[in-house]
Amino acid sequence: MQFFDRSGGVMNLQIKQRINKLQDAIDRWLSPGNDHLREAIDRSVKEGFFSFPDIKYQIQALKKSIKRGELIRWAEQANHTEWISEKKKVLCLHAGNLPLVGVQDILAVALSGHHYIGKISRKDPYLPQTLLNSLKNDGLISGRWSVELPDLKGERADALLFSGSVHSVDDLLEKLSELDIADNKTPQLMRTAHFSIACIEDNSSETMHHLADAVFRYGGKGCRSVAMVVAPFSLNSSKCEFTDYVESFWLKNPQHEKPSGSLYYRYAYNKAAGIEQAWLDDFLIEETEHEPTEPFILHWVQGDRNKAAELANKYRQRLQTVYVTDPSAKIENAPVEPELMRDAQNPPIWWKPDGQDPLKWLIELK
């Protein structure tokens, strides 16, 4: 069987074989019989890094998204039809806000054929290493990784993949330079988006169910998590109903991390200022158009698709995407293409964080 890229080129046999081998390795890694992954899950839960429901959800999402056909599609979209002629050292600085949030970057390096160097987050120290060990044992990744950045001193990366806060970039590059790992001249793919917007147009059971999952999964800590919703109705008219969906979600998925006491002070301020809101003890929903900058807050805005486009453009520097409920819906003049809200927390393996395909970026490295 031959595989063709989008421009009609035939995919290199070596790439096809690598995809097949990568899929086999992923299947073994995600299998119920993988004791190393099971132990990493147990440690992550016992040591308080993540809740079991959140890890289980992520594992199930990866099982659905990492399929041979999806890996082929990813390679096609990235125009990965020829094997790279020169291996580069790629440093991946992994975030730890969600369990296994760095899987896409790891697979991008493995699929590209480059050499991997990894800084594993202290907030997710065990889970990613089970994948890396599996890929290394199968000859799909070569390199080093550590939870401690000084352990990678002198590696001298040729490229850098980073996901995190834009405010930490300068300090990070300074530290990398001190350790002779990378500097300002090192090619960098920085993903710094912080939140997403949902544009809903009804309050059906399906819509409210997907909205609750998009907002409250992982405590709202992901860049794909909804921090602002635009709806044709006010918060006051729907907060009792929506709260029922939230409580139902929390019964099955208790919120792992609790907010600081400052969240209650914000609630008290809103109450004094006459701002419509819903206090959920560990989360606050408020009817404001303020830029989402604080965790555990959902901003509710009454409006339509035009309003969603206006807000998306206003906050585009920190925006990941805009979600809709109708596959045919268009958000005219929005800075990003809309995605379906039902896929907010389980994107395809080939999705583009901040509009950038990490695999395409890696295979085009010079």
Rank of each mutant, 00 (worst) to 15 (best):
A312F: 04
H299A: 03
Q302S: 12
A312P: 00
G303M: 11
P292Y: 08
T293V: 12
H299G: 05
D304Q: 12
P295M: 07
L311W: 02
A312G: 09
N313Q: 08
L298I: 13
V301Q: 04
H290R: 10
T288F: 03
D304C: 15
H290P: 00
Y315M: 07
D304T: 11
N313D: 07
H299S: 08
L284S: 02
E291T: 03
Q317V: 14
I285M: 15
W300N: 05
G303A: 12
A308W: 09
P295T: 06
H299T: 03
E294I: 10
P292E: 08
V301A: 01
P292K: 10
E286F: 06
I297D: 00
E310R: 08
T288N: 11
F296V: 06
H299R: 13
E289H: 03
E294W: 10
D304H: 13
L311E: 01
E310D: 13
H299Y: 12
L311N: 03
E286C: 14
Y315C: 06
I297A: 05
Q302Y: 00
K314N: 01
N306Y: 09
I285T: 07
Q302M: 14
E294P: 05
E294Q: 13
H290V: 09
A309R: 00
P292S: 11
D304R: 09
E289D: 10
W300C: 06
A312S: 06
K307A: 13
A312R: 00
Y315T: 05
E289G: 09
E310L: 10
P295W: 06
Q302K: 15
I297E: 02
I285K: 02
F296C: 06
E291Y: 02
F296E: 01
E310H: 11
R316Q: 11
N313T: 02
E286Y: 07
L311S: 02
W300D: 03
P295E: 07
L284Y: 04
A308F: 09
P295Y: 07
K314T: 12
R305E: 10
R316G: 01
E289T: 08
